[in-house]
Amino acid sequence: MTERSDEGALAAVREVAGALRPLWLRKLQDRIDAQVARVPARLNEYAFDDQGLSPDFIQRTALPIALMYEHYFRVRSVDIDRVPAGRVLLVANHAGQLPFDGLMLSMAMLLEAQPPRIARGMAEYWVSELPFVSVMAARGGALVGTPRNCTSMLQSEECVMVFPEGVRGMNKVYRDRYQLMDFGLGFMRLALETQTPIVPVSIVGSEDQQPGLANLSRLGRVFGMPAFPITATFPLLGPAGLWPLPVRYHIYFGEPLVFEGDPSEDDAHVQERVDVVKAAILSGFERGLAEREGVFR
């Protein structure tokens, strides 16, 4: 009984807080609500999908991320209508010490794409071992990045985003900005296997958000972390030192690329196709860097 009245009190507080929100904030929340309502998802009677995605959760928690999207990074998404309906792989660059690029890309797919899509992230294995983070990732639509999970997502016509640079890219140092680290080949084999169009995505901005001076990955291993970046503010200011600078994000979506071939071909042949995707992302960088008027604008 007490529990129920607690819930009632919480709901009342939430309602009052909601009413006190300024109009622009309420408008943003309304926009999120409207977009989430239009997302196609196969939900069970408790409003979860088989992988643990919860549109309710997204609706309740997307506001801070949407605020960052609109007002902190002031994201500009270009040619998002190139993302085809049905199964698709978004292949993007990864940078910036913390994966804000992933958040912003999925926010772009939610807020700007017509119809809105939930970009399913392929998370590192260790993400699902972290308390709280694992639950939030799952409710937000992320999956453990096993090939099997990715294939079945694509077979059920979902939009999957991958960052083939992985941690290597996320913790790249500043002089490597707008250069692509080695791509894994797995995503291309999966695309060939499931005949999925690949949309190369060039995220301009994240590469400048927290310039890395060095990456002491050996030291990171001591702490059980995949990397240990040194930046102007990290580890000087503690974890807060990884907070990104208010750079402006420009997300360029390339033309969808459809590859054909045998998914079990030699690495060399798969690599050729991967290089096509890399070149497409790099040309997006070129365009983005030429078009922007400064890192923060």
Binding site: S128, L143, V144, T146, R148, N149, S152
Partner: peptide, 13 residues
């Protein structure tokens, strides 16, 4: 189904 074991890297099906 418990014989598969509970692991973080389990696929969802």
């Amino acid at each position: 189904a418990a014989v598969y074991g509970a692991f973080s890297e389990n696929p969802y099906a």
